[in-house]
Amino acid sequence: MARKQPVVSRTRDSRAGKSSVHAQLANEIGLRIVRGDYPPGSILPNEAQWSETFNASRSAVREAIKMLMAKSLLASRPKIGSRVEPRERWNLLDRDVLAWYASSPDREAFLKAVQEFRHIIEPEAAALAATRRTDEQMDEISRACREMGAAVTLEERTGADTRFHLAILRASGNDLLVPLGVLIESAFSHLFLYVTREGDDLDAAQKLHESIERNIRLVRPEAARRAVRKLLANTDKVVERGPE
Protein backbone atom coordinates (compact mmCIF):
# COMPACT_ATOMS: atom_id res chain seq x y z
CA MET A 1 0.00 0.00 0.00
CA ALA A 2 1.42 3.40 -0.99
CA ARG A 3 2.42 5.74 1.80
CA LYS A 4 0.29 8.87 2.10
CA GLN A 5 1.79 12.13 0.94
CA PRO A 6 2.72 14.16 4.04
CA VAL A 7 0.63 17.27 4.57
CA VAL A 8 3.41 19.12 6.39
CA SER A 9 7.16 18.86 6.27
CA ARG A 10 8.95 17.60 9.33
CA THR A 11 11.51 19.97 10.84
CA ARG A 12 13.42 18.75 13.89
CA ASP A 13 16.26 21.08 14.69
CA SER A 14 15.16 24.69 14.98
CA ARG A 15 12.57 26.21 17.27
CA ALA A 16 11.14 28.14 14.31
CA GLY A 17 10.82 24.90 12.36
CA LYS A 18 8.94 23.18 15.16
CA SER A 19 6.61 26.14 15.48
CA SER A 20 5.97 26.07 11.75
CA VAL A 21 5.14 22.36 11.76
CA HIS A 22 2.69 22.43 14.64
CA ALA A 23 1.04 25.57 13.25
CA GLN A 24 0.57 23.80 9.91
CA LEU A 25 -0.84 20.79 11.71
CA ALA A 26 -3.26 22.96 13.69
CA ASN A 27 -4.36 24.64 10.48
CA GLU A 28 -5.04 21.35 8.70
CA ILE A 29 -6.84 19.72 11.62
CA GLY A 30 -8.77 22.89 12.44
CA LEU A 31 -9.97 23.22 8.86
CA ARG A 32 -11.17 19.61 8.89
CA ILE A 33 -13.11 20.23 12.10
CA VAL A 34 -14.78 23.44 10.95
CA ARG A 35 -15.78 22.09 7.54
CA GLY A 36 -17.48 19.13 9.25
CA ASP A 37 -15.10 16.22 8.73
CA TYR A 38 -15.16 15.78 12.51
CA PRO A 39 -18.54 17.01 13.80
CA PRO A 40 -19.11 18.20 17.38
CA GLY A 41 -18.92 15.33 19.84
CA SER A 42 -16.65 13.19 17.70
CA ILE A 43 -13.29 11.89 18.92
CA LEU A 44 -10.23 12.78 16.88
CA PRO A 45 -7.56 10.28 15.88
CA ASN A 46 -4.88 9.90 18.53
CA GLU A 47 -1.37 11.34 18.41
CA ALA A 48 0.12 8.26 16.79
CA GLN A 49 -2.49 8.26 14.03
CA TRP A 50 -2.04 11.97 13.27
CA SER A 51 1.72 11.52 13.35
CA GLU A 52 1.46 8.78 10.73
CA THR A 53 -1.04 10.72 8.61
CA PHE A 54 1.05 13.89 8.48
CA ASN A 55 4.52 12.36 8.78
CA ALA A 56 5.12 14.61 11.79
CA SER A 57 6.43 14.06 15.30
CA ARG A 58 4.07 13.34 18.16
CA SER A 59 5.32 16.43 19.97
CA ALA A 60 4.26 18.59 16.99
CA VAL A 61 0.84 16.91 16.97
CA ARG A 62 0.53 17.48 20.72
CA GLU A 63 1.29 21.20 20.32
CA ALA A 64 -1.21 21.47 17.46
CA ILE A 65 -3.93 19.92 19.61
CA LYS A 66 -3.12 22.38 22.41
CA MET A 67 -3.54 25.25 19.94
CA LEU A 68 -6.96 23.97 18.92
CA MET A 69 -7.97 23.54 22.56
CA ALA A 70 -6.99 27.18 23.18
CA LYS A 71 -9.36 28.16 20.36
CA SER A 72 -12.12 26.12 22.09
CA LEU A 73 -12.50 23.70 19.19
CA LEU A 74 -11.37 20.73 21.26
CA ALA A 75 -11.52 19.46 24.82
CA SER A 76 -9.33 16.72 26.25
CA ARG A 77 -11.08 13.75 27.86
CA PRO A 78 -9.02 11.38 30.06
CA LYS A 79 -8.74 7.89 28.56
CA ILE A 80 -10.88 9.04 25.63
CA GLY A 81 -8.86 11.60 23.70
CA SER A 82 -9.64 14.92 22.06
CA ARG A 83 -13.34 15.56 21.55
CA VAL A 84 -14.71 18.23 19.21
CA GLU A 85 -16.55 20.87 21.22
CA PRO A 86 -20.07 22.12 20.34
CA ARG A 87 -19.96 24.86 17.70
CA GLU A 88 -21.34 27.48 20.10
CA ARG A 89 -18.18 27.13 22.19
CA TRP A 90 -15.80 27.79 19.31
CA ASN A 91 -13.92 31.07 19.43
CA LEU A 92 -15.28 32.51 16.19
CA LEU A 93 -13.43 35.77 16.78
CA ASP A 94 -10.11 33.98 16.43
CA ARG A 95 -8.36 34.76 13.13
CA ASP A 96 -7.65 31.14 12.31
CA VAL A 97 -11.13 29.89 13.18
CA LEU A 98 -12.67 32.64 11.06
CA ALA A 99 -10.46 31.71 8.12
CA TRP A 100 -11.46 28.04 8.45
CA TYR A 101 -15.11 29.01 8.80
CA ALA A 102 -14.87 31.17 5.66
CA SER A 103 -13.37 28.23 3.75
CA SER A 104 -16.11 25.82 4.76
CA PRO A 105 -18.58 24.49 2.16
CA ASP A 106 -21.45 26.63 3.48
CA ARG A 107 -19.80 29.92 2.60
CA GLU A 108 -23.08 31.74 1.99
CA ALA A 109 -24.17 31.10 5.58
CA PHE A 110 -20.84 32.49 6.75
CA LEU A 111 -21.24 35.62 4.62
CA LYS A 112 -24.75 36.20 5.91
CA ALA A 113 -23.51 35.86 9.49
CA VAL A 114 -20.78 38.41 8.77
CA GLN A 115 -23.37 40.76 7.28
CA GLU A 116 -25.59 40.48 10.35
CA PHE A 117 -22.60 41.32 12.51
CA ARG A 118 -21.80 44.33 10.34
CA HIS A 119 -25.38 45.63 10.56
CA ILE A 120 -25.11 45.55 14.34
CA ILE A 121 -21.67 47.17 14.61
CA GLU A 122 -20.73 49.35 11.65
CA PRO A 123 -23.49 52.01 11.45
CA GLU A 124 -22.94 53.02 15.06
CA ALA A 125 -19.16 52.84 14.68
CA ALA A 126 -19.35 55.28 11.76
CA ALA A 127 -21.57 57.65 13.74
CA LEU A 128 -19.08 57.58 16.61
CA ALA A 129 -16.17 58.08 14.22
CA ALA A 130 -17.82 61.21 12.83
CA THR A 131 -17.61 62.89 16.24
CA ARG A 132 -14.52 61.25 17.74
CA ARG A 133 -12.01 60.68 14.95
CA THR A 134 -8.65 62.41 15.03
CA ASP A 135 -7.13 64.11 12.01
CA GLU A 136 -4.73 61.20 11.60
CA GLN A 137 -7.59 58.69 11.71
CA MET A 138 -9.54 60.72 9.16
CA ASP A 139 -6.51 60.71 6.89
CA GLU A 140 -6.39 56.92 7.18
CA ILE A 141 -10.08 56.56 6.27
CA SER A 142 -9.80 59.00 3.35
CA ARG A 143 -6.63 57.37 2.02
CA ALA A 144 -8.22 53.91 2.04
CA CYS A 145 -11.26 55.30 0.22
CA ARG A 146 -9.07 56.88 -2.47
CA GLU A 147 -7.06 53.68 -2.83
CA MET A 148 -10.28 51.75 -3.41
CA GLY A 149 -11.17 54.05 -6.29
CA ALA A 150 -7.68 53.84 -7.78
CA ALA A 151 -7.29 50.07 -7.40
CA VAL A 152 -6.49 48.16 -10.56
CA THR A 153 -6.76 44.59 -9.29
CA LEU A 154 -9.32 42.81 -7.16
CA GLU A 155 -6.66 42.16 -4.53
CA GLU A 156 -5.79 45.85 -4.30
CA ARG A 157 -9.43 46.85 -3.98
CA THR A 158 -10.15 44.21 -1.37
CA GLY A 159 -7.18 45.32 0.70
CA ALA A 160 -8.21 48.98 0.56
CA ASP A 161 -11.84 48.09 1.32
CA THR A 162 -10.79 46.14 4.41
CA ARG A 163 -8.51 48.96 5.59
CA PHE A 164 -11.36 51.45 5.15
CA HIS A 165 -13.75 49.58 7.44
CA LEU A 166 -11.15 48.74 10.06
CA ALA A 167 -10.02 52.38 10.14
CA ILE A 168 -13.59 53.44 10.93
CA LEU A 169 -13.77 50.97 13.81
CA ARG A 170 -10.53 52.40 15.21
CA ALA A 171 -11.78 55.96 14.74
CA SER A 172 -14.92 55.19 16.75
CA GLY A 173 -12.88 55.66 19.91
CA ASN A 174 -14.47 52.60 21.53
CA ASP A 175 -11.75 50.32 22.84
CA LEU A 176 -14.04 47.28 22.67
CA LEU A 177 -14.57 47.69 18.93
CA VAL A 178 -10.89 47.91 18.04
CA PRO A 179 -9.96 44.27 18.80
CA LEU A 180 -13.12 43.12 17.02
CA GLY A 181 -11.89 44.87 13.91
CA VAL A 182 -8.53 43.13 14.03
CA LEU A 183 -10.05 39.72 14.65
CA ILE A 184 -12.65 39.89 11.89
CA GLU A 185 -10.25 41.19 9.26
CA SER A 186 -10.03 37.80 7.59
CA ALA A 187 -13.81 37.50 7.54
CA PHE A 188 -14.16 40.89 5.85
CA SER A 189 -11.55 39.92 3.29
CA HIS A 190 -13.50 36.80 2.33
CA LEU A 191 -16.70 38.82 2.14
CA PHE A 192 -15.24 41.53 -0.09
CA LEU A 193 -13.62 39.00 -2.42
CA TYR A 194 -17.02 37.36 -2.78
CA VAL A 195 -19.08 40.47 -3.47
CA THR A 196 -16.69 42.71 -5.40
CA ARG A 197 -17.80 42.92 -9.04
CA GLU A 198 -16.92 44.73 -12.21
CA GLY A 199 -18.63 47.72 -13.80
CA ASP A 200 -21.77 49.15 -12.26
CA ASP A 201 -21.43 47.28 -8.97
CA LEU A 202 -17.95 48.70 -8.37
CA ASP A 203 -19.01 52.23 -9.28
CA ALA A 204 -22.03 52.09 -6.98
CA ALA A 205 -19.99 50.63 -4.12
CA GLN A 206 -17.32 53.31 -4.53
CA LYS A 207 -19.89 56.10 -4.34
CA LEU A 208 -21.36 54.59 -1.18
CA HIS A 209 -17.92 54.42 0.44
CA GLU A 210 -17.23 58.01 -0.58
CA SER A 211 -20.50 59.06 1.06
CA ILE A 212 -19.44 57.40 4.31
CA GLU A 213 -16.02 59.06 4.15
CA ARG A 214 -17.52 62.48 3.41
CA ASN A 215 -20.03 62.36 6.26
CA ILE A 216 -17.41 61.26 8.78
CA ARG A 217 -15.09 64.03 7.57
CA LEU A 218 -17.86 66.66 7.80
CA VAL A 219 -18.86 65.50 11.31
CA ARG A 220 -22.33 64.30 10.33
CA PRO A 221 -22.95 61.28 12.58
CA GLU A 222 -26.55 60.57 11.53
CA ALA A 223 -25.69 60.90 7.84
CA ALA A 224 -22.68 58.61 8.34
CA ARG A 225 -24.93 56.06 10.02
CA ARG A 226 -27.40 56.17 7.12
CA ALA A 227 -24.62 55.92 4.54
CA VAL A 228 -23.27 52.74 6.14
CA ARG A 229 -26.75 51.24 6.21
CA LYS A 230 -27.12 51.94 2.49
CA LEU A 231 -23.79 50.28 1.80
CA LEU A 232 -24.72 47.22 3.84
CA ALA A 233 -28.11 46.97 2.11
CA ASN A 234 -26.31 47.03 -1.23
CA THR A 235 -23.93 44.30 -0.06
CA ASP A 236 -26.87 42.23 1.20
CA LYS A 237 -28.32 42.21 -2.32
CA VAL A 238 -25.05 41.04 -3.84
CA VAL A 239 -24.70 38.24 -1.27
CA GLU A 240 -28.28 37.13 -1.96
CA ARG A 241 -27.53 37.11 -5.68
CA GLY A 242 -24.70 34.68 -5.14
CA PRO A 243 -21.39 34.23 -6.95
CA GLU A 244 -21.13 34.83 -10.67
Results as ranks from 00 to 15, higher is better:
M1H: 06
M1D: 12
K4L: 15
V8Y: 00
D13Q: 11
S20D: 07
A23C: 08
A23P: 07
Q24M: 14
I29T: 01
L31E: 08
I33Q: 03
P39R: 05
P40N: 09
P40Q: 09
S42Y: 10
L44T: 07
P45Q: 01
Q49E: 13
S51L: 03
T53F: 15
F54V: 12
A56H: 07
R62P: 01
E63S: 15
K66E: 07
L68G: 10
A70I: 09
K71G: 10
L73H: 04
L74N: 07
S76L: 09
V84H: 05
E85C: 15
E85S: 15
P86S: 10
E88Y: 10
R89T: 14
L92P: 06
V97A: 12
V97R: 05
A99Q: 15
A99D: 15
Y101C: 08
Y101I: 08
Y101E: 14
P105T: 07
P105D: 08
D106A: 13
F110Q: 00
L111E: 02
Q115M: 14
F117G: 07
R118F: 01
I120W: 14
I121S: 07
E122Q: 12
A127M: 05
A129D: 00
T134F: 08
D135V: 13
D135K: 02
D135H: 06
S142T: 15
R143C: 14
C145P: 06
A151G: 15
V152P: 03
T153K: 02
E156N: 06
R157F: 10
R157H: 07
T158F: 00
T162R: 12
F164C: 06
L166K: 02
A167E: 00
A167I: 05
I168G: 09
L169S: 06
L169F: 05
R170S: 03
L176N: 11
L176M: 08
V178D: 02
P179K: 00
I184H: 03
A187S: 09
H190A: 14
L193R: 11
L193I: 05
T196W: 02
R197S: 09
A204H: 05
A205W: 03
A205N: 07
Q206P: 09
H209C: 05
S211Q: 09
I216C: 02
R217K: 10
L218V: 01
P221D: 07
E222L: 11
A223H: 01
R226P: 07
K230T: 11
A233P: 00
N234S: 11
T235V: 07
T235L: 04
V238P: 00
V238G: 00
V239T: 08
E240H: 05
G242P: 01
E244V: 08
